[in-house]
Design a protein around this nucleic acid. Structure first.
Lengths: 398, 398
DNA sequence: TCACTTATGAAGGTCTCCATAATAAGTAAC
DNA sequence: GTTACTTATTATGGAGACCTTCATAAGTGA
C-alpha cells in the first residue's frame, strides 16, 4: 500500500495487500470466540479457497494471532491440522468503582474472565481512599491472573455520575469528593493500553446485551434500581451516550423523583430500630413478599416513581426490552409486577420488561465489553487492518 | 434470530474481483454529488494508481455509471478527460401526504430535485379521494420531470400516523378513514422501484440532517409543531424508529398534552368570528408578535405543553440540537423564546434549539433522502458491490 | 516553431487469488 | 499385515488486478 495514504472513513478499496488484510480479518472473525477449526472448515466459512485460507492462516500464525493445536484424534482420513485464535494474546480489564465495593475483572480477547477480585471500601470513603482501593483491586487482579499492567491492552472503569470524554468525573452526587477525579489518568498509571471511563448504568446496559437477558435486542432501556437510580440506553445495538454524555439521565428531573425514590423504601416503619439504612430496602421487599400490606404499599410507591422515568424513556425510544437491574433487581419477584403495571398505564406499546440475571458483576462485565469493543474498533477494524498482536498505542479516546 | 436483532453483516474479503468492486465503489463515492473530475484527481482522491483508476473508470463508463464530459478548456498541458457520475441514471420520488396538500418531489441520484408538484386535497377527504390526489400528484410530477414510473428506482411516502414495516398505516388520528390504508401497495402500482412509507415527523427530521439546520449534528430531536404535534429522532446520525416503530410518539401520553396543545391556540378569543379554524394559529402568533398580552399568554401556554414532551425527549437522548419544524415554525420568532425557557427549566444540559428553515417541503425532502438512503444501502453497498445502473428489484423492506 | 506542462498509453513486474493434480497420513476391512 | 478408503496437505500453473516506469500525445505560452 502506498505510503501516507489516507485511510478513508468509508471502507475503501486499495491494492492487493488490502485484500489480504480483509481476508485475514475474515479468518480471525470466524475463529474468534470459538474452538479450534481445521483449514477445510475455515475455508468453507470464509468463502476463500483452501490454498488461500492456508496462506492467510500461516501468515496469521506467524504474526502470533493463531496457534496450532493438536489434531482431533480418531476421525476418518488424514488428521487435519487445527488452528485456534490466541485469545490469550492480550487482556482487558473491567473495573467497577461502586459505593461499597471495587470490582475488577481480567478477561482475555474472547471476553472469558480469567480472574475476578472484589475489594471493600467504605461508602463514606473520600477520593484518596477510594482510589487506593482501585489500585489495590487492580494490582490483586493482575497478580491473580498472572499478568502485569503491560499485558493489558485496554481497560474500562465504570463509576456513578457524569463522565466526560477525557475520563474525568464531572459530577458525582453519590460519593464524597468524587466530582472532578481524573479516573482515566489515574488508571493509566496501572495498565498499558487505553483506559476508558463511563457511567455505571450504561456499562451495565451494555453487559445485558452481551451476556444478559438483552442478548438479542437492538433497542433496550436498562434501569439501575438500587440505592441509586439510573438508566442506560442501547439504540440500534450500540450504547447511546448522547451529545453531552448525559443521555438517560432522566433522573435528574426532580419531578420524576428518581433521586428520592430509594428514600421511599427507607421510610418504611416496619423495620427494627438500629437497622443499617442500606439493609432496609431488602427488609421491605422481604416483608412485601410475605404479604405485609404496608410494605407492599411502599414498594408500589417506589415502583410508581421508577415507572415515571422509565415510561418517558420507553415512549421516547420504543425499546424492545426494558431490563430491571441494580441491587433491587434481586427482589424482582415483588418489584416487577407493580413496575410493569405502572409502565403499562403510560405507554403506547408495552415493551417486554424483565429482570437482570447478571447480578453484582453487571457493571464490571460491561466494562470488559467496552474494552473489547474498543479493541475491535482499533485492532480488528476493516479500515485499518490487523497488526501484530501487541498492545495498541495508548490514545486519548472520546 | 429474534426480530430487531442487529444484522452484523461484517464486511468480508474475497477474490480479486471483490477488490475491483470496492475500488469501483470508491470511485463512485468520490464522484457522487460533485462535478466532473479528471483521472488524475480521481487517482489522488481514491488512493489508487493512475492506471488502475483508468481501468476502473472505463469499466464504470461501460456499465453506464460514468460519462465523459468535454475537457476543461484553456488549462496548461494536455487537456485531461473528465468524467462525471451519471446522477440522472436513476430517479427517486419523495411524497408527502399532508392534511391539505399532497406534495411530490422527483430527484436524481444526487438528490437534486428535478420537478416539484403540489396538489390540494380537502382536510375532510376520505381514503379514496386522498389516494386519488396521490395518484394525480405522482402522475403530474413524473410527466413534469419527463419520466415514467419505470424510471423511479425508489419512492418514499410520508404520512401522519403510525406506519408498520409493510407500509400500512396502522393508526391515524388526523385524517378520516386513513387507518388501515396500504400506502406502499398503492404507490407500488405507480412506480418501478421499492416503495417505503414512514412517519412524516421522522422524514422531516431526516431532511433537517440532510439539507437543513441539523446538517452537522449526530443527535437531533425534531419537533413537528403545527395543527398536529409530532417528533422525529436522529440518533448517531441515523433515523431512530424504535422496535415497534413508535419511537418519539411521546405525544400519545395524555399527560403531556401534545394532542390538545394546538387546541390551546384555537381557543384564543381575540379572533374575528367566522375565521377558518386553520387560520387562527397564525393570527395568534401575529397578535403576540404585535404585543397582544392575551395572545402572548396563549402562545406561552402552548410552548409549555410542547416543552413538556420535548424535555422528556431531550433528557432521554441528550441531543446536540432541537429543531422546531412544522407549520408553526414560521412563527419561530415568537415561539422559540418561550419554548427555550420552558425546556431549559426541565433539562440538565440545554441543547441548542433552532427553527427549521426548510419550509413546507421538509417532509417530501426527507422522503427523497430516505429513498436515496435505501438505494445507497442496496446499490452502493460495499457488501454487495455495484451492478449495472438499472432499477433495483423491488423488495418489501422493513 | 520550440520549450514546457500535463495527460495518456503500453510494458513489465508483483501479489493474491483460484483450480487441479499429485502426495501424505490416518482409519477400516480383510 | 496388507489393501482400500477417506480426508488433508503440498505443488504447479494460470488469471486478474494492482503497481511503477517510460515513451508518446496534445495542449499552452514565449
Amino acid at each position: 500500500m502506498r505510503k501516507g495514504q489516507v485511510v478513508a472513513e468509508q471502507l475503501a478499496g486499495g491494492d492487493l495487500s488490502r485484500l489480504r488484510q480483509l481476508n485475514a480479518l475474515a479468518v480471525v472473525r470466524v475463529l474468534r470466540g470459538r474452538s479450534a477449526l481445521t483449514l477445510t472448515e475455515l475455508s468453507r466459512e470464509t468463502g476463500l479457497s483452501r490454498p488461500s485460507t492456508q496462506d492467510v492462516v500461516s501468515q496469521l500464525q506467524h504474526q502470533g494471532w493463531l496457534e496450532e493445536v493438536r489434531p482431533e484424534p480418531g476421525v476418518m482420513g488424514r488428521p487435519a491440522r487445527r488452528y485456534r485464535f490466541r485469545s490469550d494474546a492480550g487482556w482487558v480489564l473491567g473495573v467497577d468503582v461502586g459505593g461499597h465495593t471495587v470490582r475488577v475483572l481480567a478477561a482475555d480477547l474472547d471476553g472469558d474472565v480469567g480472574h475476578a477480585v472484589r475489594v471493600a471500601v467504605a461508602i463514606t470513603a473520600g477520593r484518596a481512599e477510594r482510589l487506593a482501593a482501585v489500585d489495590a483491586a487492580v494490582a490483586e487482579c493482575l497478580a491473580g491472573a498472572g499478568l502485569t499492567g503491560a499485558d493489558i491492552w485496554a481497560a474500562t472503569v465504570g463509576t456513578s455520575g457524569l463522565v466526560d470524554a477525557a475520563g474525568q468525573v464531572v459530577l458525582s452526587v453519590a460519593y464524597p469528593q468524587w466530582t472532578g477525579v481524573r479516573l482515566a489518568k489515574h488508571v493509566e498509571r496501572l495498565v498499558g493500553g487505553a483506559v476508558l471511563v463511563d457511567n455505571d448504568s450504561r456499562l451495565a446496559a451494555l453487559a445485558e446485551t452481551w451476556r444478559g437477558v438483552a442478548r438479542d435486542a437492538a433497542h433496550v432501556v436498562y434501569l439501575l434500581a438500587g440505592l441509586r437510580t439510573g438508566a442506560g440506553l442501547i439504540v440500534d445495538g450500540r450504547l447511546h451516550r448522547g451529545f453531552g454524555r448525559a443521555a438517560g439521565e432522566i433522573g435528574a428531573l426532580p419531578e420524576l423523583g428518581w433521586i428520592r425514590a430509594p428514600e421511599l423504601l427507607r421510610g418504611w416503619t416496619g423495620v427494627p430500630a438500629g437497622t443499617d439504612p442500606d439493609d432496609v430496602a431488602g427488609l421491605v421487599f422481604a416483608a412485601a413478599r410475605e404479604g405485609d400490606r404496608t410494605a407492599a404499599a411502599v414498594v408500589g410507591r417506589y415502583a410508581r416513581e421508577l415507572a415515571l422515568g422509565a415510561a418517558a424513556l420507553v415512549l421516547a425510544l420504543d425499546p424492545q426490552l426494558v431490563v430491571l437491574g441494580g441491587g433491587f433487581s434481586r427482589s424482582a419477584d415483588v418489584l416487577l409486577g407493580p413496575l410493569r403495571r405502572e409502565i403499562e398505564q403510560r405507554c403506547v406499546r408495552l415493551p417486554e420488561i424483565v429482570a437482570s440475571t447478571l447480578g453484582d458483576d453487571a457493571v464490571a462485565l460491561g466494562a470488559v465489553k467496552l474494552s473489547l469493543d474498543h479493541l475491535r474498533e482499533h485492532l480488528f477494524d476493516p479500515r485499518t487492518g490487523l497488526a501484530s498482536p501487541v498492545p495498541p498505542a495508548r490514545r486519548l479516546i472520546a
